[in-house]
Design a protein around this nucleic acid. Structure first.
Lengths: 339, 339
DNA sequence: TATTTTTGCTTAATCGTTTAAACAAATATA
DNA sequence: TATATTTGTTTAAACGATTAAGCAAAAATA
């Protein structure tokens, strides 16, 4: 019942030549005559031959597969990054394997093992929120497999990184809010231990200082940045005796939660409290009022991450200098913070 | 500079036994002594041995990889289906490779080729809108590789299918709108050639008949169901002399476009025109007003698709009866159509 | 004690490709 | 014409695992 696989041997038999010649013909080896090549390709098509990737990858020691690890595909940012990684790598003859960590350290470790086991030629990853222990990433490095991080990265791991300038983005946001006339600007930040969120916090603190605004610790909250936690942290801020007049939230999903709370309590946005999110998820332009947010250039990040990988595999030289690319983000001003 | 790979041969050398014994020990073969197994596993750990998937897959003729093809990972429905497929398959020792067709027939064909080339053990797919030519799917079948379709499937391809009852869903929606008092119900449907959208249209037409409502052809439009096209089709409906008092749209993204148009024109939802979408994307609960939509049980669909694949590989019998599973969808009533 | 069965391993072939090395025939060079 | 080079192919050994078959030694059975 099972269909017999067509192999190069079958093609060789038809043409009465050796399998080696067939292999070389299919790979356009210069030492094979044009006539033979043509014949081989014709017969290959006739027999509906499909090369066996496992065999060639095993022999070549190269799978032409690249693993991608993201916290969730279900966000515009990550899905767009993936799309662009894929576009660049496909052109170079690579295919990608996408895995999700669901923000779980354990799942992320499993994913790494799976990818290594599948013999990927490289890994492009954005780390889960939970991840503190870097030993699994060290494992990738120790195998000599190119590792490229984007968005969620770690300085300690001395690897290529593509991301945006989080520190500077916070400055942009605070500048914008100050210009609007806001004086008590709160910040619902992500986990401090995650580098990008820590940088956003630092940027926020320094920007306040720059504008001679006092830093009020009750206005600086740490959050998991889910919609649910956005709601909770917003409620905390509203419970304060001295409410903020603007809230900068380090993630769009959390900013959505905050927006819902403000709408429910009939607090006017941006008149009473202005709102700024982060990530420029499509829904920020869909909700009422639309939410000001920061665009992270997902297309660019995806392309650069892929190119960074290609640099590694194509460069045979030992002069492997690290690619650390920091892009400038763009503030997309919408109704939630308009003048 | 490159790290030498550790193979079973290295382990064998350390223990002065044969590579075959090592392989069997690692696979818990009953003919290997407990002592040897223990020693092998200890040394494997010490040397940080990672099995070479390519080699074992080649030899076994089984890659333990399952390919997944979806139009876009960037929708809650598909990302949730994928998550659940993965959960079930991981438990059974399989890993998945996710690919996106971006609703393009050409890309979908490429994805199929990639997956076949990677020697996946099975393919779970949801077809692109564009896809009419089924020859690439026939190719999968002709190779004897299990193929399971979900959501977007085709009856002609005689394969397993998991989806919801689209025809019945339309009835549910029309019933709900009629109950609300609506008399002129419009339908912005997907492409007729896509089976699921065609079923929704049929359900709409029959439900109108059931309620003795006239079928007005200017109220039945065909759409690509993007946000942009949702806007355009809504504008078409508003241009009618005799406007509808309810619009049932076969996709949430298009319903969002329609909602934007109605909001811009200050047409009251649901008082002037009620709105119902399809898919229960999270944003339907985020926008103002929230949009009534149909929940497709993505978790269930994902799990069932994975189980269906496992059925195929585990069943060695020839009695392979087809799994055609049709789930009942659930109508989630929100502000856009509340009484 | 002699014979059979079980246990625990080894040998060698195999999966489908690639590729270094060998080699004959054709062509170029001296 | 003799020698060197190029061309087009074959042979055979990999890649790293699995596995059928074989074979001693140990244990069980008669």
């Amino acid at each position: 019942m099972k269909k017999k696989r067509i192999t190069i041997k079958d093609i060789a038999n038809v043409l009465s030549i050796s399998p080696a010649a067939v292999s070389k013909a299919l790979n356009d080896d210069s030492r094979i005559s044009a006539k033979t090549k043509e014949a081989v390709k014709r017969v290959a098509k006739e027999l509906n031959y499909q090369p066996n990737h496992l065999a060639s990858a095993l022999r070549r020691g190269k799978s032409n597969l690249v693993g991608v690890i993201v916290p969730k595909t279900n966000s515009n940012f990550f899905s767009s990054v993936i799309e662009n990684i894929e576009a660049v790598l496909n052109k170079a003859g690579y295919n990608i394997i996408i895995t999700q960590s669901n923000e779980s350290f354990e799942k992320e470790c499993k994913n790494i093992d799976t990818l290594l086991y599948t013999q990927v030629d490289g890994i492009i990853a954005s780390m889960a929120n939970e991840t503190v222990d870097l030993s699994f990433y060290e494992k990738i490095k120790s195998k000599g497999i190119p590792l490229i991080l984007f968005d969620r990265g770690e300085n300690d791991l001395n690897v290529d990184y593509i991301g945006i300038n989080d520190y500077e983005s916070s400055h942009m946001i605070v500048n914008h809010l100050v210009e609007r006339g806001c004086k008590r600007i709160a910040h619902i930040g992500g986990f401090k231990r995650t580098r990008i969120f820590n940088n956003r916090i630092k940027g926020y603190v320094d920007a306040l200082k720059k504008h001679n605004l006092p830093l009020d610790n009750e206005l600086l909250l740490e959050s998991s940045l889910t919609t649910e936690d956005g709601r909770n942290k917003m409620l905390e801020l509203l419970a304060l005796e001295n409410r903020p007049d603007a809230v900068y939230i380090a993630g769009d999903y959390a900013s959505l939660g905050a927006l819902q709370v403000l709408n429910e309590k009939k607090i006017k946005i941006p008149e009473d409290i202005a709102l700024v999110g982060f990530g420029n998820e499509p829904f920020t332009a869909m909700v009422t009022p639309t939410i000001t947010s920061v665009k992270q250039h997902s297309e660019e990040i995806g392309k650069l991450a892929a190119k960074s990988f290609l640099d590694h595999v194509e460069k045979t030289t030992v002069t492997q200098n690290l690619n650390k690319i920091i892009l400038d983000a763009a503030l997309i001003i919408r109704d939630s913070s308009k003048k």
